[in-house]
Design a protein around this nucleic acid. Structure first.
Length: 492
RNA sequence: GCGCCGUUAGCUCAAUUGGCAGAGCAUCUGACUCUUAAUCAGGCGGUUGAAGGUUCGAUUCCUUCACGGCGCACCA
């Protein structure tokens, strides 16, 4: 650990001083009657003379302290905001004032008092009594500039949250987003379920897994990369509308859009196809935006984004034509590859025509999709869990939706033909054997489930983290995850 | 994994061409009973991320390493 600084040593001495003065620096409980925001609401009309008939108790952290000899002002912060307190020696008494004098910024106190307004108009609690609730030993970052250093902010999120209030707002919104989604889905007949995090066979996405081991079973287990195949088993079992907020784990690189563990919402609706899911998606996201930011019109990194349905719908082939001028359908396989290479698309590891189309899309089209756009009908080669497109077996009924240049979600008409699904798995198995660590494993139990018969089903998955980035205007996923993954801190 | 940039007091940041490592806030002492970036006076605070090298002398130049940010790659 880091060496104790002088400040920490000083504060440890104050601990003893406080004990010597007869106070417990770590008492057990306190009963606040109000939060700071309740005081601001309920006493908005108060004038300079306090209403002695309405004493209140608040608890919070001292954020600033302005001592004036025999009186002092301080700002107290609780979970909802700030309020000024005014402490006078002749009001709280000499003994308590002696303790108050040596309290530090960062200490947590309980204050009983009456509310009044100062000459300068600030709503203030005049303390009748003040009690230390927890002594702080470590100095807070500076009040004016706050905590800027990103590394410290991520490693010591607790300090970040104390001093940077807007960070707390982002995470409060994240909670509201989850609640809005849950409320919306519950209201239209979905039920929330839980499925395994530890899976003997990973599937449902193309990604490298984290591998772990169960000692008693002496069995390799994988942390889930998706919960898709389990939710569809529940559709087979007769739950017609299910969803799960799924913490997923992917053993891959980290950047502004990726954290090794992240949260996906997946939902499945029996008797629906991907067109139905498109309508559900745009309604769900628009509803969430209204609940959380009050509007479907949002700003992301200076860009005006409208989430108001309906969103633009393009097939992947159409979008390539619109954004690059490449007419995919008129080009043979070789000509298409040449067109891709001319446009500096990296085709390393791409073996199929469908893979080429997807690579062109990823490189040239995706970054240009700022407003919400559904991209439909993916090449079958890159979509092993989606049902073939009606009337064109080169494609599947799949869409992803994009905004601000990011992929935000993925959905299909779910493949429910067990024979077709087995063939797709076998194709994936060949890729896996050829060294593609991200290809699927054959999941015999899932095939068995499909053989019992799964209704036609539409499914959707989208990242809660990225939706939170969008709705809170944060460009980095680390700013919407409390404790983003970090390398170990050097503690020598 | 690759490239670029960064790391100086508790926090936010300076330091000229390689020449005594500084400021504001915080902290400590004293004064002050309506302040709010309180004010006034005085003080403390540093292994300049780590190790090595060049040099009379390194925060500064070189090498290696650690961590972070951004970009690329990988990937949704």
């Amino acid at each position: 650990m880091e060496a104790p600084s002088n400040v920490i040593a000083q504060r440890r001495e104050k601990l003893e001083e406080i004990r010597n003065l007869g106070a417990n620096p770590y008492p057990y409980r306190y009963s606040p009657t109000h939060t700071t925001s309740e005081i601001h609401q309920q006493f908005a009309a108060i004038q300079e003379t306090p209403d002695e008939s309405k004493p209140i108790c608040i608890a919070g952290r001292i954020m600033t302290k302005r001592d004036h000899g025999k009186s002092s002002f301080a700002n107290l912060q609780d979970s909802e905001g700030l309020i000024q307190i005014y402490v006078r020696q002749n009001v709280i008494g000499d003994d308590r004032y002696d303790i108050y004098k040596i309290l530090d910024v960062g200490d947590i106190v309980g204050v009983e008092g009456v509310v009044f307004r100062t000459r300068t108009g600030e709503l203030t609690v005049l303390a009748n009594a003040l009690e230390l609730l927890s002594k702080s030993l470590r100095p807070l970052p500076e009040k004016w500039h706050g905590l800027q250093d990103k590394e410290t902010r991520y490693r010591q999120r607790y300090a970040d949250l104390i001093v940077n209030r807007e960070v707390k707002d982002v995470f409060s919104k994240r909670t509201l987003i989850v609640q809005a989604i849950r409320d919306y889905l519950n209201a239209i007949g979905f039920i929330e379920v839980e499925t395994p995090v530890l899976q003997p066979i990973y599937g449902g996405a193309n990604a490298r897994p984290f591998i772990t081991h169960h000692n008693t079973l002496d069995q390799t287990l994988y942390l889930r990369i998706a919960n898709e195949l389990y939710l569809k088993r529940l559709i087979v079992g007769g739950f017609d509308r299910v969803y799960e907020f799924s913490k997923d784990f992917r053993n891959e690189g980290m950047d502004r859009d990726h954290n090794p563990e992240f949260t996906m919402l997946e939902l499945y609706q029996a008797y629906a196809d991907y067109e139905d899911i498109m309508c559900l998606t745009e309604q769900l996201i628009a509803h969430t935006a209204k609940e959380v930011v009050g509007s479907t019109e949002i700003t992301f990194q200076g860009e005006e984004i409208s989430l108001e349905p309906p969103w633009q719908r393009l097939t992947m082939i159409e979008s390539i034509g619109v954004k690059t001028g490449i007419d995919v359908e008129s080009l043979g396989d070789g000509a298409l590859q040449d067109a891709a290479l001319d446009a500096k698309v990296d085709l390393d590891g791409v073996e199929s025509r469908g893979g080429t189309i997807a690579a062109i899309f990823d490189t040239l089209v995706e970054p240009k999709l700022l407003q919400p756009t559904f991209i439909c009908d993916y090449p079958i080669e890159v979509s092993p869990l989606a049902k073939k497109k009606r009337g064109d077996e080169r494609f599947v009924e799949r869409f992803e939706y994009f905004m601000v240049g990011m992929e935000m979600g993925n959905a299909f008409s779910e493949l429910n033909d067990p024979i077709d699904q087995r063939e797709r798995f076998i194709e994936q198995g060949k890729k896996l054997e050829a060294g593609d660590e991200e290809a699927f494993m054959v999941d015999e139990d899932y095939l068995r489930a499909l053989e019992y018969g799964m209704p036609p089903t539409g499914g959707l998955g989208f990242g809660i983290d990225r939706l939170t980035m969008l709705l809170t205007d944060q460009r980095s996923i680390r700013d919407v995850i409390f404790f983003p993954q970090m390398r170990p801190e050097d503690q020598t």
